[in-house]
Amino acid sequence: MRVEKKKDVLTFYLNEDVDDYQISLIKEECIRLIDSVHPAKVILDFSEVSFVDSTGIGFVLARYKQCAANQCELVLRGLNQHHRVIFAMSGLFHLIKEEACL
């Protein structure tokens, strides 16, 4: 995972599979950075992600709750069609919006 901070936006560039193993490697860093940086907006970029499982959905939902507690916006970016189906079925799009890649 690569992280970028520009002005008041914190972007996490996720890669590979967003599954139980990968989440165990990145979760604590994401939590720490969001809590310490206090961004106005957090972007989870899925452009380089090939697979998302239920742990990945839980991770996104937990970051949504963390961002809500920190009064910042969470958006998803770089979703492919498979990701959109998974997130739509989970109901995440009722809480989190998708942003087009720049």
Rank of each mutant, 00 (worst) to 15 (best):
R2K: 14
R2E: 10
R2S: 08
R2D: 10
V3S: 05
E4V: 15
E4N: 13
K5G: 00
K6T: 02
K6W: 01
K6G: 01
K7T: 04
K7M: 13
D8G: 02
V9F: 00
L10F: 11
T11A: 09
T11E: 10
F12H: 00
F12E: 00
F12C: 04
Y13D: 04
Y13N: 05
L14T: 00
L14Q: 06
N15Y: 12
N15S: 13
N15R: 11
E16N: 15
E16F: 09
D17E: 14
D17G: 07
V18T: 10
V18P: 04
D19G: 06
D19F: 03
D19Q: 08
D20C: 06
Y21E: 13
Y21R: 13
Q22S: 14
I23G: 05
I23D: 01
I23N: 04
I23P: 00
I23L: 00
I23S: 03
S24T: 09
S24C: 03
S24M: 00
S24D: 13
L25S: 03
L25V: 04
L25R: 12
L25T: 02
I26C: 07
I26E: 01
K27G: 02
K27W: 07
K27M: 07
K27N: 12
K27E: 08
E28F: 07
E29I: 09
E29A: 05
E29Q: 12
I31F: 06
I31Y: 12
L33N: 12
L33W: 07
L33P: 07
L33I: 14
I34L: 03
I34M: 07
S36H: 09
V37G: 04
V37K: 09
V37N: 05
H38P: 00
H38Q: 14
H38K: 15
H38Y: 03
H38S: 11
P39T: 11
A40V: 03
A40D: 11
I43L: 12
I43C: 01
I43D: 00
L44C: 02
D45L: 10
D45M: 08
F46M: 09
S47W: 02
E48I: 03
V49D: 02
V49L: 05
S50F: 02
S50D: 08
F51E: 05
V52N: 08
V52H: 02
V52Y: 04
D53M: 03
D53N: 14
D53Y: 04
S54C: 07
G56A: 14
G56F: 04
G56N: 13
I57Y: 08
G58R: 14
F59L: 07
F59K: 10
V60D: 01
L61K: 10
L61M: 11
A62D: 12
A62S: 15
A62M: 13
R63G: 00
R63F: 06
Y64G: 03
K65P: 08
K65F: 11
K65H: 14
Q66G: 06
Q66P: 07
Q66T: 12
C67Q: 06
C67A: 04
C67D: 04
A68N: 14
A68P: 06
A69F: 03
A69Y: 04
A69W: 03
A69V: 08
N70G: 11
